[in-house]
Amino acid sequence: MWGWIFVFLALALLLYIYFLKRELRKLKHEIKGLPTRSSFGSRLSLDFREKTLLDLLDELNQMIDAFEEKNRQAKQMEENVKLSIAGLSHDLRTPLTSINGYVQLLHAATDETKRSHYLKMIEHSVKRLLEMSDHFYDLARIETNQKEIVLSSISFSNLVEEIFLSFYEQFEEKKIELQFPEQPNERQIIADNLMLIRVIQNIVQNILRYAKSKAFISYRNEENYLVFSVKNDIKPDSKVAVEKVFMRFYTEVASRTNTESSGLGLYLSKKLVEKMNGKMDAELNDNWFILTIHLPINKNQT
């Protein structure tokens, strides 16, 4: 009897080893094929339900998930780089062409009034080039996680008023009326000061380019956030696609002939706000374009 039991156990062990080796060979074959099919969501599988093998399988599939995610991020970054290069080439060409044209006119002009006008236009185009360069530089650093964030407690309403009023002459020139709340919001937020300045500046530039005649600033407290809203009326012939305003390189002019905008301002602003643990939304209500930003409140404020 003991002999038969020994034979049975020996056969069971041999079968176990056979199936184990078969599954390991299958697993080895599937692992070799991973580089060619892993991007299609393939996963390793086994027919032999043995706990140790299943644990190994789970670990390997987690590695595959991580590899695919890294691969997806790398491809996305590659696409972003291609798109950035294409956008950069297009957007820089317009002010560069403008500068070249005005330089030629400047050389040919003898009238001082005309020369002064051409110089002013050249200065304007150079300023746009510098602004675009800053946008592209910030965007590249954000999307490669190289832009460091330094969070601190900031009096947001004071900063907003300071930046908006620094553009007072431009608002006067464009005949855009600004309206601030009668009582400023005294709540402080947690944010990166430099990033916040860039966001507000981009919002100001957006108003200067697209507002018809009015812009209203308001604040409200909402749970753990200070909500900052800016709304401006839009020109009658405006064709704002509100669902696209945060897309990279989107401009109101579909043909992208708008020399005043690279289409990166709001896209970059949204990225910066999200990096500061906030959120940024846009909506179109009748002839009003409304931007809303949620920024975390400093709970330790006294």
Rank of each mutant, 00 (worst) to 15 (best):
H124R: 14
L105Q: 06
K120Y: 08
Y137A: 11
E123W: 06
K114E: 14
E143V: 10
S153L: 02
M121D: 13
D134W: 03
M132Q: 06
R141C: 06
T144S: 14
A140H: 09
D134T: 07
M132D: 03
R115W: 03
V160S: 05
H124K: 15
V150T: 11
L105E: 06
T110K: 14
D111Y: 05
L105G: 02
T144R: 12
S125E: 13
T110M: 11
E143F: 07
M121W: 06
V150I: 11
S157C: 01
Y118C: 06
T110C: 07
A108F: 08
H135Y: 05
K147L: 15
A140C: 10
L129F: 00
E112W: 08
D111G: 10
K114M: 10
F156Y: 13
V126W: 04
S133Q: 10
E148K: 15
I122D: 07
V103K: 05
E112T: 15
T97Q: 14
L96I: 12
G101M: 07
H107A: 08
L139H: 05
V103D: 00
R128L: 12
S125T: 01
L119G: 05
R141F: 04
K147A: 11
V160F: 03
T97I: 14
L129E: 05
E143D: 11
R128D: 04
V126I: 15
E112Y: 13
Y102M: 13
S152P: 00
D138V: 09
K147P: 00
M132C: 01
S116D: 12
L106V: 01
F156K: 03
F156N: 09
D134L: 11
M121R: 15
Y102E: 12
S155I: 02
S116R: 14
R115D: 01
D138A: 11
N100A: 12
H117L: 15
D138W: 06
Q146L: 14
R128P: 00
L139Q: 04
R141W: 06
L119Q: 11
I149K: 08
L119S: 12
Q146D: 06
L129S: 04
A109N: 02
L151K: 10
N158K: 15
M132F: 14
L105I: 07
E123C: 07
N100H: 08
E148V: 13
E123A: 15
H107G: 03
S125W: 03
G101Q: 08
T144L: 12
D138Q: 11
N158E: 15
E123Q: 15
I142N: 00
V160C: 09
S157H: 02
R128M: 09
L96C: 05
N145E: 15
I154G: 01
M121N: 12
A108Y: 04
V103M: 13
S155K: 10
L139S: 07
